[in-house]
């Protein structure tokens, strides 16, 4: 391991690091919005939209991100739609993450105990009030572990952006290896960089899961 090589590569990795963080953040926020909207459409069984959401979720969950990206980046220009690589990455990540987040929220809503819903009904709550005061508060708390897992998953998926040459972390490492051949050093930095993002994040998320769980259910 040559530390000099590592040191010289750090500025470039820093750029990749920032880009990975930025793309992840935008992708995660977008995924949560799309996922929440989808799960609400499903919960309230809104006609037509409900069907569209179901189809979207199946397509998104059962196809690889890499192909989704190739489609956006290489195939769309052939029919006259040109999108920049970064925007392709963000769209792809949200397309993928939206369905994962939707499943997370829906799982939470479905996890609310039948007894809770019945006692809500027993005090006369209508469907909307039942959702607002019983199902959503408890359902969100129940979905936090799935959402946390999705967040970690989506950050890792940004490494696939390298296939459309977005200069995020993995792409930075691959470029450097291609140029200078020092694979050990660059791969080492790459793994450390992901660890720096993901280890603290997963600790924070676990802590948060416990807090939310205790705050809502007391155990």
């Amino acid at each position: 391991m040559n530390w000099e090589i590592i040191k010289q590569s750090l500025p470039m990795f820093q750029k990749g690091f920032e880009l990975t963080l930025y793309l992840s953040l935008v992708g995660i926020i977008g995924s949560i919005i799309v996922g929440l909207a989808s799960s609400l459409i499903k919960y309230f069984k809104i006609p037509v939209l409900q069907r569209i959401v179901a189809i979207y979720v199946e397509i998104s969950r059962n196809t690889p991100l890499l192909i989704q990206l190739f489609f956006l980046y290489y195939a769309f220009p052939a029919i006259g739609i040109k999108i920049s690589a970064q925007l392709c990455g963000i769209i792809g990540l949200i397309f993928l993450g939206g369905s994962y987040m939707a499943s997370g929220f829906t799982g939470g809503f479905n996890g609310v105990k039948k007894n809770q819903i019945e006692s809500g009904k027993a005090i006369g709550l209508n469907n909307w009030q039942l959702a607002r005061y019983v199902v959503f508060p408890q359902g969100f708390a129940l979905s936090v572990p799935a959402l946390a897992a999705n967040i970690i998953f989506l950050i890792k998926e940004t490494s696939i952006f390298t296939v459309i040459a977005i200069p995020e972390l993995t792409n930075t490492a691959m470029d450097l290896i291609g140029l200078y051949y020092n694979s050990n050093e660059y791969l080492f930095v790459l793994v450390i960089a992901y660890a720096i993002i993901l280890i603290p994040l997963s600790i924070i998320l676990t802590f948060l899961e416990k807090r939310v769980r205790y705050g809502t259910f007391g155990n």
Partner: peptide, 20 residues
Amino acid sequence: FRIVPTTVLLFLFYYILPRQ
């Protein structure tokens, strides 16, 4: 295996197994 993205895992094996 949880923390390292699969893309990176593949590259790790691809470069390190033969070279090291």
